[in-house]
Structure formats: structure tokens, C-alpha cells
Design a protein around this nucleic acid. Structure first.
Length: 882
RNA sequence: AGGACGAUAGCUCAAUUGCGAUGAGCAUCUGCCUUACAAGCAGAAGGAUGCGGGUUCGAAUCCCGCUCGUCCUACCA
């Protein structure tokens, strides 16, 4: 590694592994508990232990890593807190499947052994996702890694539960909840995904008590009728003003009341609604208002209960068919129509959920939500981009109580016990005796808490709460939360509520909401669609740096990302370009030179030197600001353009005459110093985006010590508009010649004689001073610089604002072609001129537009006119030679 | 049903706060293995910024309507 020569092409794989290990060994990701530096902190959105890396993680992790590495380079004490989520239902499902392969189910195994099996599973496979995050280069403080079921975090969960219970914000009750018959557990409203399905709307006649006539109700779920305990009509519905008090519930042969409730929509169907309080949330509410019985006909596994009479034991969907058949037979099925409606599915296993009456624990979130709303309203927490604010408020204002109990085994068991006397005990420590009757016959609630309950505490539970740790003092509230919008409600909103309630402060100052990564066609990636692009495959193929840079470049605010490998390939080329630029530079930067030229002597600076320093300075400012404002794509494209189109295309090429030529050691030394300073600065600037290659090159640079992660953030040399203008004169001339060459099909190996005329003396001076650069880059035999005068004969011309370029072409090209080219050029300019003239001919513009704008347009006009005249003159001349 | 976002070069996308449609990658065409790079270099071509109005001296950008997509939220049986 002492040699500073580079291989011909960049080979990412061994480099990535090598430097990642190095960073970990050197503990470069470690945060200090206390430090005089500014604190910067991010908590990772904990991936599920069952997770495998997908595009969403890749984007999420990359953006966080960019921020963390950037802040470290800026000199902050950075904590990036990593960890994983126990993912209750998801993990339980995985382990259950594994048992099923051995022909076992969890009930045969028993709770204790099952939970032990899950822990075993986690020990074996739970670090897979972490290792994948490392492949991405994630600079988390791994020594602090947490798990939502760690002892400390579990204690935090208990503390929170108990306090909320004592404050009356957690309650237990019998309500309609969403039930997944496959997972066998309650789900929160959020955990239900609605999908429109084509179904039917069945119209069923409920006869009056005399067996005749009746009320016709409509339903999409006929099997629920078995549990009907009323038929409701709207009290204002005149059709039913004098209707009978009771009707017969078909198939069950019991009479049920006809009730009046404002909820019923008179416009829907017949205006009569069957009421099933045990299986529909609205019916449940109606039932409460009218003291109706609840009859639960669908059991927890989706099998009809004994309450379903002769339908007992049927699966809910088989029962639906059977009920329809039976109704048909009895002549009570009035009509059927196709009907598309939203049906809820379990977000974990996609099974159709069943609204079911059940005893569950709830958090009363309204009071918590208020503070969370205020904090965003007054900007204590900023949501970026802003449009998500509206979504956040919308949700928060309409928030409903959160069902937090799950009937599974993997998770935080609810710290509540019931005594045989019926007393409910909620306690941090396992109680030994009932405070009411003294009995020790206590049973703990078998339910566990929703996974998101522990995730909600993540920003402070990971830092040691309820202890008042130094870590909390240093890093809470965290600086920013980076996440996808799909978990804005699941997670972000709940962290806000819990953070404000328990820490008395918001959990983060900024929330940066990034896009969702979709496939090339804009569709969500999913296993079932088979359109998943595996990030690890992309990394294997193109390297981590190329992949990261692509993700950053794609991360425009408020837009979804359509992932395409083509783009990654483009950025891989860029990575290679950097590599080669460094390879070239290092050929000229030996250690000696580095020592000699530690200081740049301003007197020896060439124009390209001054120019690249000015451009570099602007890049530092623009890119830094973009990162500060989470405009990752702007930062990426700024760096891309600087490195490729300014540093490589112009600076390195322009530096060649100095580096290869004989202009004296002093000049050469200064140029080398500039090259070295700008290149090292650029590496540092690039490092947050592409950490591996920058570290690799860093170590080859003369005079660098240790990791690039410990480098100083580059300082600006200051912008110099005059230098940029003078450089533009040179590039303009070079491009003009190249243009003529291309258009005229003149071989690059053919050296040209070129005459440049300019009336501006300082411009002539600049050109003269940099003659060798022009000669080199435009491949000239000779260059004459003159004041305007005799137009050289038989020449192609190119015109810039300050100079006219003549390329004598006698015997080289076809003049008819040149006429065509010039005519086209004039056409272009006169088009522009037309626009400008129109503007200047408009009184409104002259009167109302700010003066400097008008002035600018006027300058533009005169420049265009000048150019047009010059080209016209040349055109005439060429024409005369035909 | 309500809401959000999108529609710009053949494709994928950029374009601070309104000021010559400014631009990138890929694809296309032309010429080059020119002493870091053919994963490259130098050129070229390509656009009434979805449609219709409005505000403005001036609109891709601000406002209204429409069409087409995508996605969220939602208890109409």
C-alpha cells in the first residue's frame, strides 16, 4: 500500500471489505457519550429481525449514512444508533412455518418452548440483516446495537405501559377489532390493508312475524346474518314509519326487533340495514345505542360457532355459499348483483380479516396526539418535504384508539394479571399476591403488545431510558429521522406522541421522508409480482459506491424512485472515472512534490489552477448546502458535474501542458499542489456518498495520514468570477475549433493553424498567456492572436462574445458545407435575437421589470447583434469563394 | 368518497425564490485506441414543458378547470 500507483480499473469488492473492516477496527463509527463537539444523532429505523435487505432499506440506510459521514467530517460528535425490531407477527410466522415443516404447531410445543425457539432462531439468523447493512457501508455505532426485546428496552416498555395505564390512557374492553383468522390475533386498524374486490350484494327478505311480506336488507357478507340481532331503518324514512316491530331472522327462526337509527342511509338499497353487532364495527355502535345482544357466529379461526346453528363448523366462506343456497331454497333471496367493495386484508399474511368482537387493550391516543400536532405546527419538529405535514395532520386529527394487544406469543407480554377474585393488577414487577383478596392465584394476561408499541419508544429506549443516561443528555432529541412515508403513521406519529409524553420533548428535530423505491414501471416491488431487484445483486454487479450514488441521485424530494440498472451502470462509470482521474494525478504527485508544494504560491498559479479552485469552492458550498437541506440528488449531481465535466474534462487536460512541459519547477510545483489540494478536497466531499473508493484513493495520496473519515472538511478558496470569465474565453475558443473540426469532418490528428481576433486587449492577453493550453486542447499547429483586421481567406469561423476564431481551410474542406453551417448558426442566433427584441419592444417589460433584468437583456441583445454581424460577414466571404 | 403526487428530449429523470427551455444518464448519429480512463475522448441531432383558460412585462414554475397515471386515507351495509 506504500506505492501510490493504481491498477488500471477500479475493482470494488476487495476494497469494500478491506476498508469496512478497517473502519470497524479503528472504531471510527463510535460516538462519545459526552463531547465538547456539537452532537448529531440519528436512530435507525430498526429493520425486522426476519428481514432481508431490500431497496427500501438500501435507500434509507444510504441517506442516513451520507448524513452521518458528512456531519462527522464537519466535526460533529455523531451517534448513529442501530438495532433491530422483534417484529412480533412476522417473526412468529417464520418460526411457525419452520415448525410446520416438522409437522408441529406452536400449541403442541407450548408457549415457553416456542418463545425459546424464536430466541434461538434470532440468535442464528437475526444478524443477517445487520451484515447486509454493513455491505452498504453503514457507519452505525455497532457497539451500541439494540433489539426491541432487550432487557433494557423491555423494561422501558413496561414502564410506559404502567404509566399510561395509571394515567387512564390504557384501558381494556370488549370492542370490534380487526381479527386475522390465520394469525389468530387482533390487528390495529393500520395493520389492515384495504383492497377492492369483486363480490356480490345479496338482497335478503326478512319476513314479518306472520311469515308474509317483510323487510329487504342488502349485504355483502350473508354469513353474518346468522348473528343478526336487529334490522335498522332511519327514523326519518317515511317508507318505514308504520312498519312492524319485529321480523323473523331467516334460517335461524328467531324474531329480531326493527329499530330506528339515524346511522342508516335511506339512499342505500332499500333503506333497511341488518345489524350484526358482533361482526361489524358500525353495527356494534348501533347495538350499544339500542342495547342489542351480540351473537358471535364466526369463531377465531374463521370457523362458524355453535351460535350459527346448523352451519356450525363450516368455514366462513363455505358458510356464505351455504347460507345463500338455503335462502334461495326458502325463496327469501330477492336478488343478487355484482358489487365491488373494499375488503380488509392482514398486512402480514394477506388473509381477509374479520371484524370481530373481542376483549382487547387499547391506548386512548387523542390526548397524546394533541401535543404531537402542536409540535409540528410550531416547527419544533420539521417534516421535510413539507407536503407530508398535511398527511400527518390529517391522520392525527382523525386518530382513533389504538388496539395494542395481540394474541400471539412473541413479543412483550402485557404486564397485567387477573386474580381469581376478578381483580386486575397492572405492575412492573411480577406480583405475588392479589392486593384485594390476598390470593396468590394470579394469571398473567397471555397477550403481547403490538410490535409498534416498543418501536414507538425507540428514540429514547435505545439510549437507556428510563435511566437518565449521559447518552440521552447528549443525543436526545435526535437530529433527524430518515424514513419512508409508508410508516409515517405506524411509527413516526407514535414516536412523536410517546417522545413528547415521556421525554417532554420531541424525539427528533427533523423528519426527512424519502421516496419509495419502485420497479422500472413504477410499481411497488413485491415478491408475488416477481419484480424485486435485490440490492445485493446490484452491489455485486456494480459495486456499493455506484449503487449508493445512484440512490442519492434518485432521491429527489417528493418523488418516487423508479429503479433501473442502467442508471447504476452510469454511476459505475463515474466511479471508474474518479479512479482514473486519481490514477493520472498520482502519476504526477510523488511524496517529494507534496512536501515541496505544501503551500500554494499565488504568483505561480495558472489560469486553470485559479479556475479549478474557484469551481471547487463553489462545489463545496453548493453540495454542503444541498446535504444540509436533504437535497441529496442536487448534491450528487453537483459533485458529478464538478468531477467529470470540470475537474476531468477541463482542468486535468489544461494542466497537462504544465505537467508535461517545461515551464520551470516552481510553476509545476504550484500546479501540482493545486491538483493535490483539489483532489483531496474532492475526495473528502465525495466520501459521504461513495465511502469506499474515496478511502482507497485517500491512502494512495501523498501526505495523507489515517482514514479519510478523520480528514478536515475542505475549506473554500473563494469564488473568482473574473477567473471564471477568463477561463470561459479559453474553453469557448477550444470548443469553437473542435466544433468546426467535427462539422467539417477534419481528422483530430490533423493540426490546424488558427487565427483569433479580438478587440479586447485583456482578452488577447489572456489568450496569449494560455496559448499552449489552446494549442494542446484544440490540436493546433499554430495560433495567431490579433486585433480585428483583415479577415483571413477561405476560413471557417466560430464566434464567441469577445473573440472571432478563424480556421483557414483552403484545400481542406468543402465550402458549400461551411455555408450551410454558418447559415444554421445565424438562424439560431436570429431566433434568440427575436425573443430578446420582442422583450425590449414591450413597454410593459421596460417599465415594470427590475432594472438589472432589463440591463441584462440589453447587453444580451448587443452581444447577439455583434455575433450575428460577424458571422454574416464571414458567410458573405465564404460565399464569394464558391 | 376525500387527499397527495406526477405528466419536460426516443427512454429514465433534474431545473433554488417566475427572467433566453438551462440540463444529466441511457439510446441514436459522426469522428477518434490523442501520452488517466473505449467503463473513454471530441462533436451532432433531438423539446409549442399533457390539454384548456387565467394572473404577470415575462410561466415548466403561481391560480382554476380537464384528461391520464400512481399512491395514501376511509365503517356506506
Amino acid at each position: 500500500m506504500s506505492s501510490n500507483t493504481l491498477k488500471k480499473g477500479y475493482e470494488p469488492h476487495d476494497v469494500e471489505k478491506r476498508w469496512y473492516d478497517f473502519w470497524e477496527q479503528e472504531q471510527l463509527f463510535s460516538a462519545a457519550d459526552k463531547s465538547p463537539k456539537d452532537s448529531y444523532s440519528i436512530v435507525i429505523p430498526p429493520p425486522n429481525v426476519t428481514g432481508v435487505l431490500h431497496m427500501g432499506h438500501a435507500l434509507n440506510i444510504t441517506l442516513q449514512d451520507i448524513l452521518c459521514r458528512f456531519r462527522r467530517l464537519k466535526g460533529d460528535n455523531v451517534l448513529w444508533m442501530p438495532g433491530t425490531d422483534h417484529a412480533g407477527i412476522a417473526t412468529q410466522n417464520v418460526v411457525e412455518k419452520k415448525l410446520a415443516a416438522d409437522g408441529l404447531d406452536r400449541h403442541q410445543v407450548g408457549r415457553e418452548k416456542f418463545v425459546a425457539a424464536v430466541w434461538e432462531w434470532r440468535k442464528e439468523y437475526g444478524s443477517a440483516i445487520i451484515n447486509q447493512l454493513k455491505r452498504l457501508g453503514a457507519s452505525c455505532d455497532w457497539e451500541r446495537e439494540r433489539f426491541t426485546m432487550d432487557e433494557g428496552l423491555s423494561l422501558a416498555v413496561r414502564k410506559v405501559f404502567i404509566r399510561l395505564y395509571e394515567e387512564g390512557l390504557i384501558y381494556r374492553g370488549s370492542y370490534i377489532i380487526n381479527w386475522c383468522p390465520r394469525c389468530n390475533t387482533a390487528l390495529a386498524d393500520l395493520e389492515v390493508e384495504h383492497e377492492d374486490l369483486d363480490g356480490h350484494l345479496w338482497h335478503i327478505r326478512y319476513p314479518f312475524e306472520d311469515g308474509k311480506g317483510g323487510l329487504i336488507v342488502a349485504t355483502t357478507r350473508p354469513e353474518t346474518m346468522l348473528g343478526d340481532t336487529a334490522v335498522a331503518v332511519n327514523p326519518d324514512d317515511e317508507r318505514y314509519a308504520d312498519t312492524a316491530d319485529r321480523v323473523i331472522l331467516p334460517l335461524m327462526n328467531r324474531t329480531i326487533p326493527v329499530i330506528k337509527d339515524k346511522y342508516v342511509d335511506t339512499a342505500f338499497g332499500t333503506g333497511a340495514l341488518k345489524v350484526t353487532p358482533a361482526h361489524d364495527p358500525n353495527d356494534f355502535e348501533i347495538g350499544k345505542r339500542h342495547n342489542l345482544e351480540t351473537v358471535k357466529v364466526i369463531g377465531d379461526t374463521g370457523i362458524m360457532t355453535s351460535e350459527a346453528g346448523k352451519f356450525e363448523g363450516l368455514d366462513r366462506f363455505a358458510c356464505r355459499d351455504a347460507v345463500v343456497e338455503a335462502l334461495k331454497k326458502e325463496g327469501l333471496l330477492e336478488s343478487v348483483e355484482p358489487y365491488s367493495h373494499g375488503v380488509g386484508h392482514c398486512y402480514r399474511c394477506k388473509t381477509i380479516v374479520e371484524p370481530n368482537l373481542s376483549d382487547q387493550w387499547f391506548v386512548s391516543v387523542k390526548p397524546l396526539a394533541e401535543k404531537a400536532i402542536t409540535a409540528v405546527e410550531n416547527g419544533t419538529t420539521k417534516i421535510i418535504p413539507e407536503n407530508w405535514k398535511k398527511t400527518y395532520f390529517e391522520w392525527m386529527y382523525n386518530i382513533r384508539d389504538w388496539c395494542i394487544s395481540r394474541q400471539i406469543w412473541w413479543g412483550h407480554q402485557i404486564p397485567a394479571w387477573t386474580c381469581r377474585c376478578g381483580e386486575l393488577i397492572v405492575s412492573a414487577d411480577d406480583p405475588t399476591a392479589c392486593p384485594a383478596c390476598g390470593s396468590d392465584d394470579l394469571t398473567q394476561d397471555t397477550d403481547v403488545l403490538d410490535t409498534w408499541f416498543s418501536s414507538a419508544l425507540w428514540p429514547f429506549s435505545t439510549m437507556g431510558w428510563p435511566e437518565q443516561t449521559p447518552l440521552l443528555k447528549t443525543f436526545y432529541p435526535t437530529s433527524v429521522l430518515v424514513t419512508g412515508f409508508d410508516i409515517l403513521f405506524f411509527w413516526v406519529a407514535r414516536m412523536m406522541m410517546m417522545g413528547l409524553h415521556f421525554m417532554d420533548d420531541v424525539p427528533f428535530s427533523d423528519v426527512y421522508v424519502h421516496a419509495l423505491v419502485r420497479d422500472e414501471n413504477g410499481e411497488k416491488m413485491s415478491k408475488s409480482k416477481g419484480n424485486v431487484i435485490d440490492p445485493l445483486t446490484v452491489i455485486e454487479k456494480y459495486g456499493t459506491d455506484a449503487f449508493r450514488l445512484t440512490l442519492a441521485a434518485f432521491a429527489a424530494q417528493g418523488r418516487d424512485i423508479k429503479m433501473s440498472e442502467k442508471r447504476v451502470e452510469g454511476y459505475m462509470h463515474f466511479i471508474n472515472k474518479i479512479w482514473n482521474a486519481a490514477r493520472f494525478s498520482l502519476m504526477h504527485l510523488d511524496n517529494e512534490a507534496a512536501e515541496d508544494s505544501a503551500e500554494i504560491n499565488p504568483d505561480n498559479l495558472s489560469l486553470p489552477d485559479r479556475w479549478i479552485m474557484s469551481r471547487f469552492s463553489r462545489t463545496v458550498e453548493t453540495a454542503s448546502l444541498a446535504i444540509d437541506e436533504y437535497r441529496f440528488n442536487d448534491a450528487a449531481s453537483t459533485l458529478y458535474n464538478f468531477v467529470w465535466h470540470e475537474f476531468c474534462d477541463w482542468y486535468l487536460e489544461a494542466a497537462k501542458p504544465v505537467l508535461y512541459g517545461d515551464f520551470g519547477e516552481e510553476k509545476k510545483g504550484t500546479s501540482k499542489a493545486v491538483l493535490e489540494k483539489v483532489l483531496t478536497g474532492t475526495l473528502v466531499l465525495l466520501h459521504p456518498f461513495i465511502p469506499f473508493i474515496t478511502e482507497e484513493i485517500w491512502h494512495k495520496m501523498p501526505g495523507t495520514i489515517g482514514s479519510i473519515m478523520k480528514a478536515d472538511f475542505p475549506e473554500s478558496f473563494g469564488n473568482d468570477p473574473d477567473v471564471e470569465k477568463r477561463m470561459a474565453l479559453l474553453t469557448g475558443i477550444i470548443t469553437g475549433v473542435r466544433n468546426i473540426r467535427g462539422e467539417m469532418n477534419i481528422s483530430p490528428s490533423f493540426s490546424l493553424d488558427v487565427i483569433v481576433q479580438s478587440s479586447d486587449e485583456s482578452a488577447r492577453q489572456t489568450i496569449k498567456e494560455n496559448e499552449d493550453i489552446i494549442v494542446n486542447l484544440a490540436r493546433l499547429k499554430s495560433l495567431s492572436i490579433e486585433p480585428p483586421g483583415e479577415k483571413p481567406k477561405s476560413s471557417a469561423t466560430a464566434v464567441t462574445d469577445t473573440a472571432t476564431i478563424f480556421v483557414p481551410l483552403e484545400g481542406i474542406i468543402d465550402f458549400a458545407k461551411e455555408v450551410k453551417r454558418l447559415e444554421k448558426e445565424i438562424g439560431k442566433i436570429s431566433g434568440e435575437l427575436k425573443g430578446v427584441k420582442k422583450k425590449l419592444g414591450n413597454d410593459g417589460f421596460l417599465n415594470k421589470a427590475p432594472e438589472h433584468v432589463v440591463e441584462k437583456v440589453r447587453e444580451k441583445e448587443s452581444a447577439l447583434v455583434k455575433r450575428q454581424e460577424k458571422i454574416q460577414a464571414n458567410l458573405d466571404k465564404v460565399k464569394s469563394m464558391l
